[in-house]
Amino acid sequence: MSDLSFQLKGSVVSIIILELYQFTPAGFADQLRAKIDQAPQFFAQSPVVISLEKLNAPLADDEPSQLLALCREFGLQPMAFRGGEVNDAIRACGLPQLPSSSRADSELQMPAPVAPAPQQAAPEVVVKTVVEERVVQRPAKIIERPVRSGQQVYAEGADLIILSQVSEGAEVIADGNIHIYGPLRGRALAGVKGDQQARIFCQHMAAELVSIAGNFMLSDSLRKQLWQQPAQVALNGDSLHLKTL
């Protein structure tokens, strides 16, 4: 064992899939910017696999490299393409191309212990990455320590539960509901991907800002009702409503 310098292993990793439907640099950049602005920290340096399976027209010429440049400009790290037509334009930009997902999901074969049959211009080491994509319910994110000024916590596709305080200048964000079992003095944004049913519950309402699905309320308005009391915030039409807990 000790004289080995490495071992090749197969692994299943969860990863962000960027499923491309069509590509024009400007349209793509706009949408990506809007997406990333929702949670800049979450996307920073995230590896992504670009899926071409549902793309309407294959990428040609310098489009693949434009696409990669845009992703990198916004801090994403494209790892590979998946599916789609294999052509010179994609090969030329240097990223590996993975088989399409139906195959990867059904055939979870182990990597062969022997070196794969040499292909044309095959790389020396073949690392096989199996990418799985499923719709699953994500467990709530639970934070037990105070969220301090300057910190940001994001529960992607899930509820956020905080068992301590959220300080002034801190930001807690969830795609689902937010529960805070301590004072909320910072900002809480629930349903940031547009879930209008999301709510915010807290034991001590002293927030700088609360927001549900983009509709927000500042502390000036919050001070008029249930200030420093247990409260829940829900969206009713276009406006936020506070109720006692």
Binding site: P146, S149, G150, Q151, S167, E168
Partner: peptide
């Protein structure tokens, strides 16, 4: 107090 809160966050992260 706010700056102390910030530094506590940095200590714990």
């Amino acid at each position: 107090v706010r700056d102390s809160d910030r530094i506590l966050g940095i200590l714990q992260s």
